[in-house]
């Protein structure tokens, strides 16, 4: 049994109530008349959304690292997150964002488009190298189109909305966002967990995995669907939040037996925990305006990535090659 799962579950169960108390206004005692309202309508959905988005990022990161057999892989490599961002940005540009569901729907459509393109380019026995290149190509195409949309923004208001949204945040989210993201993320994690045994076989390389009965096309389909659901719905409700998918599997790996399959559920739990804690801490830090979650996590994540690279160069235990 995986000892990381009960440990992380406990930490998560402890963190959620704490995060409900934390904020510009601390709610230690229910001395404010609106305390219950703040918790029920603002902080609880926000906390659940943080856990949902983080869980999706963590599980997708663990699956991607297993699939690419590379501890530096990130779900962003799929091009699905940039695809979703493009969809969301389009909704701002056309002024659709004002009407509730259209932003997430367009974001999901963008994620779906990126997934379809990915399957078209790399499906049918394309192999992992081709797949990675296709993902990078889609990511840069989506990035370029996003820049185009920004540069063609109809007015300064839309421009500032787009740029702020792209930074990734969980401020002012509602139960509607939870209802959208949580089921999709859950289904996505289940799909990724189904791919887990095949990821274990991939530890020994593509040829060995095929000879062990792994159907690579099926595995790719499971991963594209799983990552598409988790990352697509995450971007739809919270914008781009980087580095969580890269960092979390690393932090969790020493707690497991290092099999890719043992990493997916613990990474989901740890991802949820990380985003929840980060979001709560940001609420408490006294600043003129709240630091955006996406920026904050990138500020932690980028040095972490550099540290990983340094360790890799020194040949320290990043797994075998």
């Amino acid at each position: 049994m995986n000892r990381a799962i009960p440990l992380l579950l406990l930490a998560l169960l402890a963190a959620i109530p704490l995060s409900l108390l934390a904020g510009r206004a601390w709610l230690f005692a229910l001395d404010r008349p609106d305390a219950l309202l703040i918790v029920a309508e603002l902080r609880l959905p926000r906390a659940l959304l943080a856990v949902t988005v983080g869980a999706g990022l963590g599980a997708a990161g663990a699956a991607m690292q297993g699939y690419l057999r590379n501890p530096l892989a990130d779900p962003g490599l799929f091009g699905i997150a940039p695809g979703a961002a493009l969809g969301a940005v389009l909704s701002f540009s056309f002024g659709f964002a004002a009407s509730g569901y259209l932003l997430p729907l367009l974001a999901l459509a963008g994620a779906g488009g990126a997934m379809a393109l990915l399957a078209l380019l790399a499906g049918r026995g394309g192999g992992i190298a081709l797949f990675t290149l296709a993902g990078l190509m889609i990511a840069s195409l989506a990035g370029a189109l996003t820049s185009l949309v920004i540069s063609l923004a109809p007015n300064p208001w839309a421009l500032s909305e787009i740029v702020t949204w792209l930074m990734g945040a969980l401020t002012d989210r509602s139960w509607a966002d939870v209802a959208l993201a949580a089921p999709m993320t859950l289904v996505g994690i289940v799909v990724l967990a189904r791919a887990a045994p095949a990821l274990d076989a991939l530890t020994l390389g593509e040829d060995a995995a095929r000879s062990m009965g792994v159907e690579m096309d099926k595995l790719l389909a499971l991963l594209v669907i799983g990552v598409g659901l988790t990352i697509g719905s995450g971007v739809a409700v919270a914008g781009i939040i980087g580095f969580v998918g890269l960092m979390v599997p690393h932090l969790v790996r020493p707690l497991t037996d290092r099999c890719p399959s043992s990493l997916i559920v613990p990474s989901a739990l740890a991802g949820g925990l990380l985003v929840l804690v980060a979001d709560s801490v940001l609420r408490v830090i006294p600043m003129v305006s709240e630091l955006r979650l996406g920026i904050a996590l990138s500020l932690i994540g980028a040095p972490f990535f550099l540290w990983l690279l340094l360790r890799l160069r020194r040949g320290g235990g990043l797994g075998l090659t």
């Binding site: 590379n70 530890t203 390389g205 000879s211 037996d257 290092r258 099999c259």
Partner: peptide, 11 residues
């Protein structure tokens, strides 16, 4: 396979 790879440090 010819050049067996072991991607992760399993037991």
């Amino acid at each position: 396979p010819q050049e067996p790879q072991i991607a992760w440090d399993l037991s």
